[in-house]
């Protein structure tokens, strides 16, 4: 019989982020498929007590809490100690957590402390005859496998954007758990946005707009038009609310002159970049090579604009490839969006 612990971090305001609420749904659904499974929540943070309410109605027996000032911000030493205490107090055999930066930072280390096993970035959970399995991707989203383990506790982190977020109803009883939090040599100073200041990465946007190196290349007139490219792209982001991704080639141009000033490595999509989740993606001036398109695994609808009819997108990677000049197309798109 499994005891499932959902491990989440309270936000600074005492709420729970969307990935945590999605993981709550995953935990509830899994518990429903396992006869006699016990479901508990473990919440840590400076406002852990307030966060419990967001999990009410998901079938949790109770919420275990580690609440302390020093957990206001993500930091390995203190977060790991809090998680370890929650796992120990719960007696969990399965520990589920959202694959956020905060939980991913500590989950594997905590699994080692608890003499358990860990698998991360699961995109589905299932159970057959009482045996739990998880689906995850290998080789940067190139292949998908189904994993299971005998060892307990088994820690699994869940990819954001897969499950529907839980909507709270009713109450959830909570119980504080003592956790000795260690001294740390790390002082968290705060968050920093990329120097350009423009907030271009929007994980919740329905549309991903990808800029490729073509935006900075010489065009038919023999000249590069980087400032026009910047104006068109930022104009489109402003009007559409899309999130901005880039190919490796375009983000690597940073600092070499003639680069798109608002792009950083954080925008990079692909093998050595991110694998964002959006309903649709529009690639422009990007060749669609495999190390780039592996980052599109979780983008459902895909269209591309490229001058080259033989680019990678034409090889079964996009639904539609428009063989056209992205400068002209995006200028017109912006006009149409402006109404």
């Amino acid at each position: 019989m499994e005891t499932i612990l959902l491990l989440v971090a309270a936000e600074e305001d005492g709420g729970l982020g969307k990935p945590a609420l999605e993981a709550a749904t995953a935990a509830r659904e899994l518990a429903a498929r396992l006869e006699g499974a016990k479901l508990l929540a473990g919440i840590f943070g400076a406002q852990a007590g307030r966060a419990g309410a967001a999990l009410a109605g998901a079938g949790f027996g109770e919420a275990l809490l580690v609440e302390h000032e020093s957990l206001a911000r993500a930091r390995f030493a203190t977060d790991a100690a809090a998680c370890q205490a929650l796992v120990a107090a719960s007696g969990a055999s399965l520990v589920l957590a959202p694959a956020t930066s905060r939980l991913q930072r500590v989950l594997a280390a905590v699994s080692a402390r608890c003499r358990g096993a860990v698998d991360t970035h699961a995109t589905a959970l299932g159970a057959e005859s009482g045996a739990v399995h998880a689906t995850r991707w290998f080789y940067r989203q190139r292949m998908v496998g189904r994993v299971s383990r005998e060892r307990r506790p088994w820690f699994l982190s869940l990819e954001p954007g897969v499950f529907a977020p839980h909507a709270a109803s009713g109450d959830l009883v909570s119980r504080p758990v003592p956790a000795p939090l260690p001294e740390s040599r790390t002082r968290v100073e705060g968050l920093r946005s990329p120097s350009s200041g423009a907030q271009t990465i929007r994980p919740d946007a329905p549309l991903l707009f990808v800029a490729g190196a073509g935006w900075c290349k010489k065009q038919a007139d023999g000249l590069a038009h980087v400032s026009e490219a910047e104006r068109l792209i930022l104009g489109f982001l402003g009007k559409s609310g899309a999130s901005l991704g880039g190919s490796k080639s375009v983000v690597d141009q940073k600092g070499e002159g003639g680069a798109l000033s608002f792009l950083t490595h954080l925008n990079q999509v692909g093998q050595t970049g991110s694998t964002p989740r959006h309903a649709k993606g529009l690639a422009t001036c990007c060749h669609g090579e495999e190390p780039h398109t592996v980052g599109w695994r979780f983008v459902s609808g895909r269209r591309a604009v490229n001058l080259d009819a033989n680019c990678g997108w034409a090889q079964g990677k996009a639904d539609v490839l428009y063989v056209a000049d992205a400068f002209k197309v995006m200028a017109r798109v912006n006009e149409l969006l402006a109404g």
Partner: peptide, 24 residues
């Protein structure tokens, strides 16, 4: 102790519509 019951390639090939000569 990691058991993998299956590993497969996703069916990833799309039927790409290549649109040429369409006005911008």
């Amino acid at each position: 102790g990691l058991a993998l019951s299956s590993v497969e390639l996703p069916s990833q090939r799309r039927d790409t519509r290549v649109v040429k000569d369409m006005p911008e």
